[in-house]
Design a protein around this nucleic acid. Sequence first.
DNA 1: CTCAATAAACCGACTGGTCGGCATGGCGGG
DNA 2: CCCGCCATGCCGACCAGTCGGTTTATTGAG
Lengths: 224, 224
Amino acid sequence: MAMQQRAVLTRGRVLIAAAEVFARTGFLAASMNDIVEAAGVTKGAVYFHFPSKEALAVAIVEEQFAQWPPMVAAIIEHSPDALTSVVALTYEVGSRFRDDILTTAGVRLSFERELVNAAMPTPFVGWVGILQELFGQARREGQLRSGLVPAATARALVGSFFGIQHVSEMLTNRNDLETRLDEFWRVFLIGVAAEPDWSGTQRAVRRVRAAVRRSPLHMDPDLD
Amino acid sequence: MAMQQRAVLTRGRVLIAAAEVFARTGFLAASMNDIVEAAGVTKGAVYFHFPSKEALAVAIVEEQFAQWPPMVAAIIEHSPDALTSVVALTYEVGSRFRDDILTTAGVRLSFERELVNAAMPTPFVGWVGILQELFGQARREGQLRSGLVPAATARALVGSFFGIQHVSEMLTNRNDLETRLDEFWRVFLIGVAAEPDWSGTQRAVRRVRAAVRRSPLHMDPDLD
DNA sequence: CTCAATAAACCGACTGGTCGGCATGGCGGG
DNA sequence: CCCGCCATGCCGACCAGTCGGTTTATTGAG
């Protein structure tokens, strides 16, 4: 019943190779021959595991979407308060955007979803929901500047984060993303927090990220 | 010596048709046949005016870049202070992103510049320069919150604006862009301004935009 | 004996771009 | 005022090549 070890290995190689090619050249410019070559397998092997180029793309995007909930949970669990969760979230997500190939490709494919002729989850709305919740909790904790609407603030943050990440990607291949997030939060936190304390927040975020990295969710999920 | 009237007409039709197609489907997915059909001319006509698909794209992008300096100048001229200029700028640029086909296409082509095999101006850096200058002036006018670095603030704003605009485009075809900018500035202005006054700024921005729309730069530039 | 994969030939659709030729408009000469 | 001419502007069938995907026969691995 279960796939042979060899099969899951090949499938993984194909998926990662496809992610690399998609991340580098986008969906349309990526040819199946490119992916086949990058994966070091043959065309037959690729089409054995994935019926089409589109299927490859949605597999990557779905894998990307599935990885967020556990990460969000881990951050919330290790955060002292909701506002710290929000800030830490942007840095953690940013680092995945830069370092995790499947994420990088998934983001790009979501970006190009109109070109991929297949059903893909709508980007952004999930994040807006999560952040809206967190901002709501921050208000209940007395951390949110009075007069701010959680939903509107969440929308503003999601848009801003995406743009900052994108500009960083275009200009420096996301190498300066952390710095840019610093620059952003230096301004934005003052507008968001009831009692802004940038350096205090920075320290808290560092602690949270360290704790999350030590958490079991960062172990290889292929073990179970 | 001069082009025949017929020629400039056809050229214009082709350029606008190309902008429509590029804006809708992107550079790679847009076929020359699509553009030919949308323009209501023949392939020969298109290739008479533009040597390649790439040339079409750079023509659109260059036209887009060229339109900004006069707009920026007009806004600065009609603004009471630098900070108002900055805010008004985001709204004006946003409305062009939504309404001006050549701009819409130019923006999209700039994102996809790696796919277009031709030299195109780097996006964002020009805007960062302009905003950095304006934030510097705002500081001299005592409007900037102390401790803020103009360059960093400019980078944060450019990224944020881009993201907000993009999210609005993906979710509502930019129909709610003004609302989203409102939501953004409600937070961001508090972080930026020395003495934040959102409703006052809103009124000032409305006045500036009205004045700019009445200015001669909004007349048809084909008259001279 | 089935599952997983190789290797290479092959298909139809479609792409960006070309090319020889036709039409048209403006200009110099009568 | 008109005529004839030729560069400019435009036409559209056509080309070579690439793409995603299929099919074939063959062969290790569990």
